[in-house]
Every structure is written in structure tokens, then in C-alpha cells.
């Protein structure tokens, strides 16, 4: 007779077969995937700060950076690093883009979520998502070669590379992501709300306006904020369609220059470690902080919804 089996502990109960190893491996892989986002964001922030710190600590002044429009980093007699015009450029283009994108994308989201049914809804959803797949350089090209002559002709202005041009394009680029998130927010409103309102005799629009939209308020705000973040960070299309001119815009037909476009246009030919190079990274730090705050607030708002 053999000895009685030893008291089994829980680990020994695991069957160490292929499935067990696969399970452990996948657990490690998804952990690495999950943590990598944190590693990358910290790494990128550390890199951008490191490269730009020389400028921030030695040449930075609030008045010189945020209060001056004179961005002339390669001037031999008097190099200055005024970012006001660049910030105004980015803000004006993003602002106009939101004027275009908010009504469009909220309208599309309400139609898809509340009015469209069956096939129409599915086809529309796919098409909206396909709009997000158009590369930004293609949008920029449309701005440069289609919209520029069109704006010159229609509005009788000297040049069509302006806030209006890039704002329209950026609005179309930001609309798909805003539509998708806004639609998710509307879907998250429980059907019992709608049924209760309908039982009281409300029309479809009354249900949407009085019940669904107020209930989805925070999700819609988050959608708009993510769109703003998208607009702030867009580079190529804005570089091509905005005219890339240092200018405080006073009308939609003025050319402007965006923060991102400045970095993209100048970084490639700047000597590594020079003041100009560090100043471009200082612009990068500023952009990073602004988009981070925008995205963080969008995220906090979405979290707020889940709790209620």
C-alpha cells in the first residue's frame, strides 16, 4: 500500500498544462501593455521637459513668452521668443473649429442615437468613423488646393489660407470623434427614461430635448472637450491651411500660425541644444500641459457620469 497523499495546498491543485502557461503569459503581456501607457506618458513628459528646461530656466519670462507676438528665434541682431501670436493662432483656429464641429457632431449623434433606426443607423455610424480615418495631410492638401482658391473667389479676399480655412478643416476632422463619444453618452441614458416620457405623451423631440440631453449633459461636454484637445494638437492640416503667418487674428480671413505647426516647421533644421531648439520644446511643454488638462477634465467628467 502506498503512503497517503500529502495534504494538498492550493498551488499544487493547479494543473500546469499549456492553458496554465498561456494564462500566465497573457497576464504578463496585458500588464506590460497596460503599464506601458504610463511609462510612455511619463517618459515623453520627462523628455520634453528635459529638452526645453534650458529655455524655461534661462530665457523665459512671462511677459516675453506670453505677452509678445515677436517670434523671431533666428534673428541675428535681436532674437525673441514671443508665443502670444502662436497661442492666439491655435486658439482661434480651434475656436472656429468647435463652432463648426459642435452643432454638426451633436446633431449627428442625436440623429444616430435617437432618431435613426436599423440599417440607416449602422451605415451612418460606419461612415462617421471612416471620416476619422482620413489622414491629416490629405485634409491639409484639400485646404491648400481646394479651399484656398474657393475662399479667395467667394469672399473676395487676397488669400484663402486663414483661420476660416483651417477652422473648417479642423472642425471636420474633430467631428467624428466628438460624434462617436456624444453618441455613446446618449446611449448610456437608460431606456426607462425615454419610455416614461413617451408614456406621458411626449414627442420624440420633446423626449430628446427634455429628458435625454439633460441626462447626457456631462458626456456631451466630455465629447466637446476631447474635440478641443484634438484641435489643439493637430499639426499637419493646420500647417498647410492656416497660412503659417505670425499675426494676431482680427477676422476669420487673417492668416495665423499654430503652436504645433511652428514646432513641426522649425524643429527639423534647428541645431540640437540651441536656444531656438529649447524654445521649441518650451512650446511643446506648454502644448502638453494644455492638452493634458483638457483631456483630464474630459476624463473626470466622464467618471462623474459613471458615479451618478
Amino acid at each position: 500500500m502506498s503512503a497517503p497523499p500529502p495534504h494538498p495546498d492550493t498551488a499544487a491543485l493547479d494543473r500546469r498544462d499549456l492553458a496554465w502557461y498561456v494564462d500566465k503569459l497573457v497576464a504578463v503581456l496585458v500588464f506590460v501593455g497596460g503599464v506601458s501607457a504610463v511609462v510612455f506618458i511619463v517618459g515623453i513628459f520627462a523628455f520634453v521637459t528635459h529638452e526645453g528646461w534650458g529655455f524655461v530656466s534661462e530665457h523665459f519670462s512671462l511677459r516675453g513668452f506670453f505677452g509678445s507676438i515677436r517670434w523671431a528665434p533666428t534673428s541675428t541682431s535681436n532674437p525673441t521668443y514671443g508665443a502670444l501670436a502662436l497661442i492666439a493662432g491655435t486658439a482661434s483656429v480651434t475656436g472656429l473649429a468647435m463652432l463648426v464641429a459642435v452643432p454638426f457632431s451633436l446633431g449627428a449623434a442625436i440623429y444616430i442615437a435617437e432618431f435613426a433606426t436599423g440599417r440607416t443607423r449602422e451605415v451612418l455610424k460606419v461612415l462617421v468613423e471612416m471620416l476619422a480615418a482620413i489622414p491629416s495631410v490629405v485634409w491639409g492638401f484639400i485646404g491648400l488646393s481646394v479651399m484656398n482658391p474657393l475662399i479667395i473667389d467667394v469672399f473676395n479676399v487676397p488669400i484663402g489660407l486663414c483661420v476660416l480655412n483651417s477652422g473648417l478643416i479642423l472642425g471636420l476632422m474633430a467631428a467624428p470623434i466628438m460624434t462617436t463619444i456624444a453618441e455613446d453618452a446618449l446611449k448610456a441614458v437608460p431606456d426607462t427614461y425615454r419610455e416614461a416620457a413617451e408614456a406621458l405623451g411626449a414627442t420624440r423631440w420633446q423626449v430628446t430635448r427634455r429628458v435625454v440631453l439633460p441626462a447626457a449633459r456631462q458626456g456631451l461636454l466630455a465629447a466637446v472637450l476631447l474635440g478641443v484637445g484634438r484641435g489643439f494638437g493637430e499639426t499637419m492640416a493646420v500647417l498647410m491651411a492656416s497660412g503659417h503667418a505670425i499675426n494676431l487674428p482680427t477676422s476669420p480671413f487673417d492668416s495665423v500660425r499654430a503652436l504645433t505647426a511652428t514646432i513641426a516647421a522649425e524643429l527639423g533644421e534647428t541645431a540640437v541644444g540651441s536656444t531656438h531648439y529649447q524654445a521649441l520644446f518650451a512650446l511643446g511643454i506648454f502644448l502638453f500641459v494644455v492638452t493634458f488638462v483638457i483631456n483630464l477634465s474630459a476624463d473626470l467628467i466622464v467618471r462623474g457620469i459613471r458615479k451618478t
Binding site: 541682431s77 535681436n78 501670436a85 491648400l144 500647417l239 503659417h244 492668416s255
Partner: peptide, 26 residues
């Protein structure tokens, strides 16, 4: 030692300059 007037449209490449000027009367 002199600088450009601010507000010029700064193109990213010589070809873009030629393209833009050929399409813009002003």
C-alpha cells in the same frame, strides 16, 4: 542684422512658395 516684417506666410519648401504665388494674385 535686419529682420523680416512679421506676418509673412512662411511656407515649408520652395515648391510650396511657387504653388501659392501662382494661385494668389496679391
Amino acid at each position: 542684422g535686419k529682420d523680416y516684417k512679421l506676418g509673412s506666410r512662411d511656407m515649408h519648401g520652395s515648391k510650396d512658395v511657387a504653388d501659392l504665388v501662382s494661385k494668389t494674385p496679391c
